[in-house]
Structure formats: structure tokens, C-alpha cells
């Protein structure tokens, strides 16, 4: 039996005094795309942040295995170097640091971890420009400070650009589709699709079914009150779209909290 890429077992987590995740079990195999849906406050984004190691998110119970290793024991940068990537719901502005410098520093940190040489400056520029084309981004974004003054859509595209350059193994996308118009959504989806491979897996947190029209998931999980109350195929997303989240919130699992 091959090892899954990610295995989450009975994960409980709290933020400050509030317990948000109340026993999540989830197995993500290599090459799979899982969508996580659910109403606001159900714990979707919390899971994404716990997996990336955000400070202040305290795991109180359970385990997360990433390629057979204890993910929760790893520092955030170590997770990133091992191939975990979180596309932020709200990408952070970093004044004074250009996108290109940042991308290069990140790529080199990851390459160094893998025992590879630093990327050649010319190769790097060529690589980034190629990926930018795919994301419909003007080259001037390279020389602007990270996310500073970017529109919501530009920030999200920039997240996917980083993902394309860093080529992670586990891509966690936290509401990558929020605030995007349909054209931007298509571009973002194109970036995600370009990365799909049998070795790479995706965990896509989304509030809406819309994104899933462009990036077809293998499995859809529905979160409510910190638990997975239902899992199924892509048709489950359609069902949610049609019925809304009301019926989920009245689900016995959700009410058990």
C-alpha cells in the first residue's frame, strides 16, 4: 500500500480560547484534488492555517502526517521547504521588498534545502517571466513591492505565480477564488491546472462551487462546526450550490458540538 501524501487524524485545534476544529480526519493521495466547502466559521481556513503552521493556532489533539512525517512538528519554513504551500486568503503586503527578490529568495531557500545549487539569475528571470505570462501578469509586477497596492485579483494571481515558481507538492489554497471576477478566476484556475500532476496534490478551501467548474476536484468535503459532515464526489458541490448550507448546519454531526 502506498503512503498517502497527507493524512489528518482526529485533528483538534483552537485559536485563542475557541475550539475551531473538533476532530478532522482526511486522507489526501498523490495527484488528488480535494475541495473543502462549508459555511463561514466551519473551520475551513483554520485547517489551512494549521497545516501551514500559523502561530496562534494551537493543535490540542490529533496528528498530521505528511509523506509519513509529523507535519505539526515542523517549523513553517521547514514545511515550505518540504513542499507545503499555502496560498493566503489575504496575501500580505510587504513594502520595500520587490516581488522578484522575494521569489528568488524563496526559491533559493527551497533549493538549498534540497541540496541544489542557487538558481542562475538569467534562468530565473526567464522562468518567472514564463509563469507570469501564464498568469496574465505584466512584468512590472516583478519590480513592485510584494502585493503593495495590488488589487484583490492581482494579489491572488501573485499567490498562484509564487506557487508556479516554487512547485510545491502539497498546495493548500485558502479561498483563492474569493473576490475574483470570472476572468480572473479563469486565469487562477489555469495556473492551478498547469501544476496538476500525479505527484502533486491540492487542498482547495472554497466557499463557492464556481471554482470547481474550472478545477475539477476528486473529492469534496463539507465542513460544519469544525467537523467533516459529508464527503463525496464533485456532484456534492453541485448539491450544495443548489441547496445552500442550511441543510448542512442542521446535520446531526454539526449539531453535536
Amino acid at each position: 500500500m502506498t503512503q498517502p501524501l497527507l493524512k489528518i487524524e482526529n485533528l483538534h485545534a483552537r485559536v485563542e480560547d475557541k475550539e475551531i476544529l473538533k476532530g478532522i480526519d482526511l486522507t489526501l493521495d498523490h495527484g488528488q484534488v480535494h475541495a473543502i466547502m462549508g459555511p463561514n466559521g466551519s473551520g475551513k481556513s483554520t485547517l489551512a492555517n494549521v497545516l501551514a503552521g500559523r502561530p496562534g493556532y494551537q493543535v490540542t489533539e490529533g496528528k498530521v502526517w505528511y509523506r509519513g512525517r509529523d507535519l505539526l512538528a515542523m517549523a513553517p519554513e521547514e514545511r515550505a521547504r518540504e513542499g507545503v504551500f499555502l496560498a493566503f486568503q489575504y496575501p500580505v503586503e510587504v513594502p520595500g521588498v520587490s516581488n522578484i527578490y522575494f521569489l528568488k529568495a524563496a526559491l533559493n531557500a527551497i533549493r538549498k534545502h534540497r541540496g541544489e545549487a542557487e538558481v542562475d539569475a538569467m534562468d530565473f528571470i526567464a522562468l518567472v517571466k514564463d509563469k507570469m505570462k501564464l498568469m496574465d501578469m505584466d512584468e512590472q509586477f516583478l519590480y513592485r513591492a510584494i502585493n503593495e497596492g495590488f488589487s484583490g485579483g492581482e494579489k491572488k494571481r501573485n499567490e498562484i505565480l509564487q506557487m508556479l515558481v516554487l512547485e510545491p507538492t502539497l498546495c493548500i489554497l485558502d479561498e483563492i477564488d474569493s473576490g475574483l471576477d470570472i476572468d480572473a478566476l479563469k486565469v487562477v484556475a489555469r495556473g492551478i491546472e498547469a501544476l496538476r500532476s500525479p505527484q502533486r496534490s491540492f487542498l482547495m478551501v472554497t466557499h463557492y462551487q464556481r471554482l470547481l467548474d474550472y478545477v475539477r476536484p476528486d473529492v469534496v468535503h463539507v465542513f460544519a462546526a469544525g467537523r467533516i459532515v459529508k464527503s463525496g464526489g464533485p456532484e456534492l458541490a453541485k448539491e450544495l450550490e443548489a441547496k445552500g448550507y442550511g441543510w448542512i448546519e442542521s446535520h446531526p454531526e454539526a449539531q453535536a458540538s
Partner: peptide, 21 residues
């Protein structure tokens, strides 16, 4: 944290923010 999630360790991230400032 944002920089760390891109593989940049904490000290380098601090230096980078200072550089930006």
C-alpha cells in the same frame, strides 16, 4: 509568517522586512 510559508527562515525573514523598511 507569510515569508516563512515560502521557505524563508525567521531570521532571514526579519532581515528581509528590515531591508524593505
Amino acid at each position: 509568517f507569510y515569508l516563512e510559508t515560502r521557505g524563508i527562515d525567521r531570521e532571514a525573514a526579519r532581515q528581509l522586512l528590515l531591508y524593505g523598511f
